[in-house]
Nucleic acid binder design. Structure first.
Lengths: 234, 234
DNA sequence: TCTCGCAAAAGTGCATGCAATCGCTGTGCC
DNA sequence: GGCACAGCGATTGCATGCACTTTTGCGAGA
């Protein structure tokens, strides 16, 4: 009450806590396996334990923290295998979305997809990483929406958000923009001609690239000496 | 504490609340769109509002209730389209699990799957609905596990639990046990010979049956009078 | 020295009280 | 007669305090 929530953004207190704690986890400020003490977090953000508890609950549902009854919460430890599993799932989900999109997208959706896709070609030439990233997110969201299946959409978005922290990896790869655009192009072409099988396969391959990049990234992590190769595409 | 949790089952209070409220929702005792007042629920189950709040949060994450900030919670309204979407997702997820299982199951897992499957044949002959249902759940869980992908497993189990309330429908269909077993048999056979494509297709078809049955079921009840009452408390 | 047990401390889980917000209703103004 | 605004009731959101569980540290016995 006395202290203003000056340091955090808008929304309900719980939302702020979710973002605050979530950010610290995905940015690595809070390390995997680290214990999350309710009282400390409450003091740290100048709120009571109640919103902290609820925030931890939500983060637990998101998979960012793990909770055990009467034993507190810890930052979720994402193993190499689990990460691979998530990317694998992502590939499958994207494939489903692409397949469905090829079958179900309305004419308007197809046109919008193609227009946006073509427009993003300029960003590739300019090497505008940031802007391309925005269009990339938009592009994939269009695919998810185009599937016309709310639940698939939810599953896909959920998985994507859970993978977000590991997505940074792909920024490291040189020539990634051009490659990404080409892969998008294959997907778009397949969708435009209603070839669901081709669209699905192309989408799956597309995710695999990111997956491999992230595997390298994750391997770089000091805590994981793994030289693991992620076998995503069957 | 004065409070006697005599009426509810074991676990933490929040878990009990999740089950209690969740059961009432899936059994139709609480109707879609109905407002869930925290104080009333707390009084109804003789607990304080705190665990009720957390339970509502979890149920919200599960998709059973919808929450809007400062506006309370309501029982989630599942539209016909959303239900179809969930079954569609389920079919795809099961297909993925079956495909992966065909490729990745260990010898032990394959053997266990086949043994259990063959054992369940007896239940079909006996017409033991209840017991078969148990084996059915076990069977599918084996498929999910056999995919050896934790995230896929999570997505699948989540979707299944969300569809659970609508699964009752299949009990109505005559000759369902035999048909179910035959479909299982196709899946098992495909998995045993490592034919991932066939296993995936068979699994997808298998879910479609349930889906169609449930669609009929859902269409039949505009507002469920809930003849089924789960003895959670009271 | 190692193991087992007990007790204190730490930390989670739940209850209760207060403050803030939303929706509603009644009244005044256009 | 309709619309806007203000006051009020109802309900959610957050803070705080207490009880229970888990854990850890210390001491006694083998």
């Amino acid at each position: 009450m006395s202290g203003k929530r000056s340091l955090i953004r808008a929304g309900t207190t719980v939302d702020q806590m979710v973002r605050a704690i979530g950010d610290r986890i995905v940015t690595g400020f809070l390390r995997p396996g680290e214990k999350l003490d309710e009282a400390s977090l409450a003091a740290r953000f100048d709120v009571s334990r109640t919103p902290v508890r609820e925030a931890l609950g939500r983060l637990s549902a998101m998979g960012l923290v793990e909770r055990r009854p009467n034993r507190g919460a810890t930052v979720a430890v994402v193993t190499q295998e689990h990460l691979a599993s998530m990317f694998e799932s992502m590939a499958e989900l994207e494939a489903i979305c692409a397949r469905f999109s090829a079958e179900r997208m309305t004419a308007g959706e197809r046109r919008a997809l193609e227009i946006e896709h073509q427009a993003s070609a300029r960003l590739v030439q300019l090497g505008a990483e940031e802007d391309y990233e925005y269009f990339n997110t938009e592009f994939h969201t269009r695919l998810y929406r185009g599937a016309h299946s709310k639940h698939i959409y939810e599953l896909t978005v959920m998985t994507r958000s859970r993978l977000a922290p590991f997505r940074r990896a792909q920024f490291m790869l040189p020539g990634r923009l051009a490659k990404s655009w080409q892969e998008h192009d294959i997907i778009v072409t397949a969708i435009m001609r209603g070839d669901s099988a081709a669209a699905g396969q192309a989408a799956k391959d597309h995710v695999s690239i990111v997956s491999e990049a992230s595997a390298v990234f994750a391997a770089v992590d000091p805590m994981k000496p793994a030289t693991v190769s992620i076998g995503v595409s069957s």
